Structures are given as C-alpha cells and as structure tokens.
Simulated assay, not measured.
Amino acid sequence: MEVAAVSPAELEAARDAALAAIAAAADLEQLKAVRTEHAGDRSALALANREIGALPPQARKEAGQRVGQARGAVSKALTARQEVLEAEHEARILVEEAVDVTLPTDAEPVGARHPLTTGAELIADIFVAMGWEVAEGPVIEAEWLNFDALNLGPDHPARTMQDTFWTEPADHHVVLRTHTSPVQARTMLTRTPPIYVVCPGRVFRTDEYDATHSPMFHQVEGLAIDEGISMAHLKGTLDHFASQMFGEGITTRFRPSYFPFTEPSAEVDLVCFVCRGVDSDQCRTCRGEGWIEWGGCGIVNPRVLQACGVDSERYSGFAFGMGIDRTLMFRHGLEDLRTLFEGDVRFTTAFGSEL
C-alpha cells in the first residue's frame, strides 16, 4: 500500500522543534533526553524516514533528500551542542573539585596496627607485669602434643574430623593446632617449675565462617605450675586480668564444668561490663543474666603433669583459656567476628594504636 510523503511543512516543523530543544538543553542529561525524543527510533524524523520505502518510486528521491537534510541538521546540532556541554562540564569540575596542592600534607598516610595485634600485646603486657613470661609455639603441631599430652585420648570427640584440621598423609599424625595448649605442654617438657607462662596465638577448627565463628581464630591460654597452687590463685589471677581488660570492679565467677586437661574444671563468667550486674533485666549485652561467658579454666590434671615430666606429687598448677577475638568484641562492642578478619583498612584505622 502506497502512502503520502510527509509534507515539507511537517518536516520543517519537526526539524525546528528538534533544533530548539537541542539549543535549550542545559546539561548533558537534558541533551540525552532530547536526543531520544527528537533523533531516536520513535522520533518524528525517524518515522518519516521509514515511510520513504512505501512511497511511489517517483516520489522517493525528493522525499529522501528532504528527510535526510532534516535529520542531518538535527544530528549536526546534537554533536555541536554535546561538545559545548562537555566543555562546560569539564570546566565546572575543574572549579568545583579544585585541590590546593600547596597545602601541607604528610608524605605518607598514617597507618594503624590491627586491633588483634595490639589486643594480644596488651594481654601479654598484663601478665608480664605480674612476672609471667610469654611462650609461643608452631601452629602445625604433633598430634601427641595437641591431644595425648593433654589427656585427650584417641576416642575423644575433639579428635574427629568435625573439629580438627588433619594434614596429609594421616600416618604422620600432624594437625593444625586446635588450641594453644600444646605450647603449655612444650613449656613443661623443656622447663623446670616454677612455670608461669601466657600463650597467645592462632588456632584452627573446622567451624563455619559466620558472625560468631571462624575456622581460624585467636586464643590466649595461661599456665602456672608451682608448689601449693590452688583455685584461689586462679580466681585472683583471672579477677585481675578481667579488671585490667574491662575496668575496675569487673570480677569473675566459676561454674563447674569438664575439660580433660583440668580437674576440677570451671567455666569463667565476667560481671557484665555494661550493666555491671545492676538492673540486668534491661541489659541487651548480658540479656538479663548479669554475667557473660568468657572462657574455661581449672587445676591442671595430674595426668597432664606426669605426661609432660612434672612431679605431680610436688607440684600443682592452674590453666585457663579464652578467645582473644571474643575478648576484643566485648571490649570494643563489636557484633560481627568477621570484621576482625576481612582486612578493611577503614576498620583497622579506627582503632589507631592502643597503648
């Protein structure tokens, strides 16, 4: 079916409307909208161009020339206006985002140590001030030191694949240490009591990575071996540790528990450092308990002393352990354990250097 060509007057009106809109565009966003309306696939000039093919042969040439001239004028105007608006945009940015390069600045940005590093050093300093020593050991550990020496027999659940990373081949009996207790065993095997050591470091367990768990985390454990050591010495040590970490008046309590390497054993709770046990029903931190679980402790099992070459008839001792990560979450009000491990410099810088 043949159609009538768009009249010259209609083409001129469409062209003039497009040119006026282009001239009125104040910025690149407005020009983009004008381009779509007056030069896009559904614009009046584009529709007129599509109708050329349906015209009689004798009318196509003239109509094609008129439409082509109109579209060419619009395209040329769009290009010219875009160049002007881009130049204005760049000039405006140079003014608005100008930087005074003559202002003094540090040659290098000030960095910050990671809170896990400063936190572990703070804990070590607390015990060094009490006359203790800091002991370290390898993170890849012999099975005997990680388990057997600590009264964790071959059938103990912690030795299964659900908790422990075992290296290959299995007959080498080597693991990624699941606690820093092997450092205590190594210390007892190489030293003669009295022994007072604190052992911070990385440990590994096959936990899921979420807001409260990680397959790699940090522990601090303490060991005291001497004549006449009792639970009273343990309680006093942990009360001092708690007050140094969380403020004066923060004490601990013991709840009976079980650990293979201590007997008797206890769970250690802190007085809530937010409500301090007063009006705890309204406290979101301790959830009405007035106490917060912190770690485990106890009197060293005589079997552990004997396995590590210490005379259990003459000497006794206590041991304790808690998570450094969990302690820092308490101390700084962190809600997600993952913030400690994800390497965001903005998180680390916020802590600065803790003295």
Rank of each mutant, 00 (worst) to 15 (best):
T252K: 05
E227T: 05
G228T: 11
R205T: 03
G236H: 11
D163S: 03
M322L: 14
G317H: 07
E248P: 01
P157C: 12
D210T: 04
E313R: 13
G317E: 13
E141A: 10
G53F: 02
I22P: 12
V139D: 15
L45H: 09
G295P: 10
G343W: 03
I229S: 03
A48P: 07
G295A: 06
L28T: 13
P109Q: 08
L189G: 09
S243A: 15
R202K: 15
L337A: 12
V198Y: 03
M216H: 08
E289Y: 05
G277N: 14
W144G: 01
M216N: 10
S75R: 15
L47H: 03
I126L: 12
T339Y: 06
W291R: 15
E97S: 04
R42I: 00
A33H: 09
V6K: 15
F341L: 10
A13F: 01
L85F: 04
K76L: 08
S214C: 04
D311C: 03
F127Y: 15
L152F: 15
I126C: 07
C272V: 00
D106M: 07
A319I: 01
G290D: 07
V34R: 04
G288A: 10
D16S: 14
G321N: 02
A224Y: 12
D311K: 04
S230P: 01
V99Y: 09
E248H: 10
E133D: 13
G222Y: 08
Q184N: 10
E141H: 09
R81M: 05
E37N: 10
A149E: 09
G119K: 12
G323T: 04
R60V: 00
A48C: 06
M231C: 07
P169W: 07
R42L: 13
A33G: 14
F241D: 12
M322H: 14
T206M: 10
R35N: 14
L103N: 06
L103T: 06
E62H: 06
R338A: 08
P182D: 09
T339S: 08
D281W: 02
V197Y: 06
E12M: 01
V174L: 15
F261T: 10
T339A: 10
R81Q: 15
P56C: 02
H332K: 04
V203Q: 04
D281G: 13
G290M: 05
